[in-house]
Every structure is written in structure tokens, then in C-alpha cells.
Amino acid sequence: MVLKIANWLDERVGWSGVWEAIFLRKIPKVNWFYTLGSATLFTAVNQAVTGILLTLYYVPTPDHAYDSVQYITTQIPMGWLIRGLHHWGASAMVVLTVLHMLRVILLGAYKYPREVTWFTGVFLLLIVVGFGFTGYLLPWDQKAYWGSAVGSSIAGAAPVIGEWVLRVVRGGSDLSAVTLARFYGVHVWVLPASLILLLGIHMYLVIKIGISAVPQREDEA
């Protein structure tokens, strides 16, 4: 019966084709370093899941941000775990993204025919950094406030447009409720949307072209 429904669905949806194309494709034998990409993807999923859960209670205003984070951490069952996973996951994601990139560089995987995959990867790295920067402010504790104050003021050091950039980043010349609101907006809408788009292209290319093989050292001429 289950089989029958599955077949009926497959005839119309065609998932077995997708399954075969993605999961049953053959790829070269690779070592454990090649799991770094998947590991990064896993942390991205972790951030998405825990991040969405956090927004159920979090309120991005100076009046409530700190209290709501404290409420999540101390009052809600498993809140400490959700927030902990998100907090530590952020660090893990940065580390894994960089390690993944190092592997790609050292093993020459950015070369033909995977240049475009590499370009999307560089943008993804910037997005991850952006996540870290905007997310740092959200708990609205001392560390968050002053860290972000210094971090954003660094932008102001740029010549000519520095002052202007600073105002754009902070939504004014001071770190304020506006800053918190826009950091939050960027953190939960702009960056995730960009991430999904680029990650989609990145994954599509990885599956289409296939993962690079472990390079053998040619005999030097």
C-alpha cells in the first residue's frame, strides 16, 4: 500500500530521479577533509533552525532585547540549549567555513571547471562574517553594545565616505534603537535570503560538476 502511494507520487513528482541524481551519483574516493563542506552546511542548518526558534521570543528593541534574551536563557525550558547552539554554532560556522575554504585552496579545487563555485563561496564567506557581526549586537548586553560600537566605528575610518558609511551602518551617528532594528533586520532577512540564494547556486554546482578528486602529485618535469 505504502509502495503504491509512493509509486503514484513518484510518477507525478519524479523524486526518484532527483534521488538518483543527487544521492546515488558516483563521486571520486575522497578523504575526511572533504566533509568540511557538509559540516559547514550542517552548521548553517543549525543556525537557521535555532535562529528561527529564537525569534519566537526575542524582541529587537533596546527596552526588551536584553530582557527577552535573559527570559529565553533562564525561563524557557531548553532555551539555554537553543541559544547555546546558536551562539556556539556561529563560531563553529566561521571556523568551518574558513577550514573548508583552506581545503579548497590547498587542494586546488577552485580550478577549472569549478571557478563559479569558488566565487559563490567567497561571497558566502562574507555573508557568514556579516551574520557574525550583526548577530553580536542582538543580545544588547555590554559586550554586544560596546563591541558593535567599536566594530561599526571602524567603518567610519574609511576615507571620504567613512562618516556616511557609519551613518548607514548605525542608522544615525549613534548606536541606538535604530541600529538594533536594522542589525536585526539584516540578520534575519537580508543575510538569510542572500545565503539561501548563493548556497543554492553553490550546491547546484557542486552536485552538477561533482566534488573534486584528491589531486595526485604529477612527476615534476
Binding site: L53, M78, G79
Partner: peptide
């Protein structure tokens, strides 16, 4: 690992 804490977390106010 995600699901069970998530449910506990979501339904907390009702519990």
C-alpha cells in the same frame, strides 16, 4: 536532538 528541545521550547508558555 533539534526536534524535542524545539517542541519543549515552543510549547513552554502553554505548559
Amino acid at each position: 536532538g533539534f526536534g524535542i528541545p524545539a517542541i519543549a521550547y515552543i510549547i513552554a508558555p502553554a505548559m
